[in-house]
Design a protein around this nucleic acid. Structure first.
Length: 198
DNA sequence: GCGACAG
DNA sequence: ATCTTGTCGC
């Protein structure tokens, strides 16, 4: 029972290492439609909300039981499934995910996993640091781990590439403060979680 | 062995 | 993430 857990963690680490090798760093072109996704909880029930702001606002809310526990470094196992469901039928040029991208021990945070699985440009936006140190260079605070610049910290938030974007793209986005689509997704998920029980 | 540790 | 009131400040 305990051995199974150890093997599962080892297996998931291997999967993350493979996913990190699939990441592409390319400049994002023409971001007309941007989308943000977040999850709120009411006990074991997760409420995922995706909000997109393009010519017209589009949003999805998915409610379901989330059984995988929160394990630092393995957040994708808990939230990626319901987040991906919330993203169904939505179209966007850039996706913002609540959590880290490559600023992760195995360069495979939830924004990276989702970006590789969906083959979409993604950026991870987190409220706290998972790894690395903050190094200021030329007025910019970078998230550095083992000599690698993995992302930036702007204000109280940490931004890092998920997939199909460059560090410069991340810098440009972060200059705008906390992204409205994420704020909207957060608000929407918390709004719906209240009506879960009754 | 001792901390750190996305949400 | 969530449990939780008021309170200090722009």
């Amino acid at each position: 029972m305990k051995i199974e857990q150890d093997y599962l963690v080892k297996f998931l680490y291997l999967v993350q290492n493979l996913i990190s090798k699939e990441v592409k760093f390319e400049k994002v072109e023409k971001v007309n439609e941007m989308c943000g996704v977040d999850v709120a909880y009411q006990g074991e029930i997760g409420v995922a909300a995706a909000v997109c702001n393009g010519r017209e606002r589009r949003e999805n809310v998915v409610i379901g039981k989330v059984s995988f526990p929160y394990v630092p470094g393995l957040l994708f196992m808990r939230e990626a499934p319901i987040m991906i469901k919330a993203l169904e039928n939505l179209d966007y040029d850039l996706l913002l995910v609540d959590g880290h991208g490559i600023a992760h021990p195995r360069r495979s945070g939830i924004a990276t996993v989702i970006g590789v699985l969906l083959n979409k440009p993604t950026i991870g936006v987190a409220k706290s640091r998972l790894i690395g140190e903050e190094v200021v260079e030329g007025g910019i605070t970078y998230i550095v781990d083992k000599g690698e610049k993995l992302g930036v910290k702007v204000g109280k938030y940490y931004y890092s590439p998920g997939n199909l974007v460059t560090l410069q793209d991340v810098l440009n986005l972060s200059e705008g403060g906390y992204p409205s689509v994420l704020r909207e997704a957060d608000k929407l998920s918390k709004k719906y979680k209240k009506g879960v029980n009754q």
